[in-house]
């Protein structure tokens, strides 16, 4: 289970004066689902294109399979990868079924098997009724589903999906996420997204890219634990005294980080028990008319915003 199927070391891509990918390294384990997370322009698409073999890296190496396999084996691996670009484009004059058969044959499936497998994946993505219609008449969601079908048609061991759900409506998104969930374990999945929520839903690992570099990576559960900090949320009634008191909050020693707004404060604290006791006592003494007080923990979303914003 812990056997890596893909190893990337110091991968770099220069494009003219730009360097969209600046030396990234990570491994993918067989059967894992990894999200490549990052804001727009972080280098996710360029990374996936290099992994799919569309672009050649300027520096660094990509290794598929076990160690020792290089060169010729990488070529062989190409047939075992399914790739879905961010905006998949098809031949509009072909029908969905014809396109899948063509793709399957290109990846080396013999004729009869290509057809059987194409019908199978069409059903999997729910396009069986549109199978014989021309692709030019498909809707955006149908094209996206056809894109996923073509990435799966040759029974790849690893699929690379570039923003598979960003262009879909909520129902289409739900369907794709369920499909990914079903595929987990059978195939190794690497998909890019700029929505943390999508990553948390199906993936067990994530790689966070910002500006061409990896800002953070690891198991989601580990990251959640790592970035879990006690958090207090306060809301008070409008008033002079309340506002002054809120502004004085950052001076307390038990508060690590404070975000003060007009009538609310968001406090990251060291020790929840101490902070809670101290603040409640203070409020009672000073007669602060609070509306809401809530104890919780910071989420990955906060970490994401912090890393991306920095």
């Amino acid at each position: 289970m812990m056997e890596p199927v893909l190893r990337i070391h110091n991968l770099t891509k220069h494009m003219g004066s730009l360097t969209p990918v600046k030396g990234i390294s990570f491994n993918l384990e067989r059967g894992s689902c990894t999200a490549l997370l990052g804001p727009n322009g972080a280098g996710k698409t360029t990374t996936l294109r290099m992994l799919a073999g569309l672009l050649s890296p300027s520096q660094g190496e990509i290794r598929y399979g076990n160690s020792g396999e290089t060169g010729a084996d990488n070529q062989r691996w190409q047939k075992r990868i399914g790739y879905l670009p961010q905006y998949p484009k098809f031949y509009g004059w072909m029908s969905g079924l014809e396109y899948l058969i063509f793709s399957a044959k290109l990846s080396g499936l013999p004729g009869k098997q290509a057809k059987l497998r194409s019908l199978e994946v069409l059903e999997m993505v729910g396009l069986q009724e549109a199978a014989n219609r021309r692709i030019s008449g498909y809707s955006g969601g149908m094209k996206q589903r056809l894109g996923i079908a073509q990435a799966l048609v040759h029974e790849p061991e690893m699929i690379l999906l570039d923003e598979p759900v960003s262009a879909l409506d909520p129902i289409g998104r739900r369907e794709v996420m369920d499909l990914l969930d079903r595929l987990r374990g059978e195939v190794t999945i690497l998909f890019s997204t700029h929505v943390l929520h999508d990553a948390e839903e199906v993936c067990d690992r994530m790689v966070l890219m910002v500006d061409g570099r990896i800002a953070e990576q690891g198991e989601l559960s580990e990251l959640r634990a790592k970035y879990r900090q006690p958090l207090l949320l306060l809301e008070v009634e409008p008033g002079e005294r309340e506002a002054d008191w809120l502004r004085s909050l950052p001076e307390r020693h038990f508060i690590e980080e404070a975000e003060i707004r007009n009538r609310a404060a968001r406090l990251v604290v060291q020790d929840m028990d101490e902070a809670r006791a101290a603040l409640v006592r203070e409020m009672a003494d000073a007669g602060i008319r609070f509306q809401r007080i809530e104890a919780g923990a910071s989420s990955l979303e906060d970490m994401f915003m912090k890393v991306v914003g920095a």
Partner: peptide
């Protein structure tokens, strides 16, 4: 220019 190459080229050696 249509982008169809992006789907075809990764499949062929």
């Amino acid at each position: 220019s249509n982008g169809t190459a992006e789907l075809v080229l990764p499949r062929i050696s």
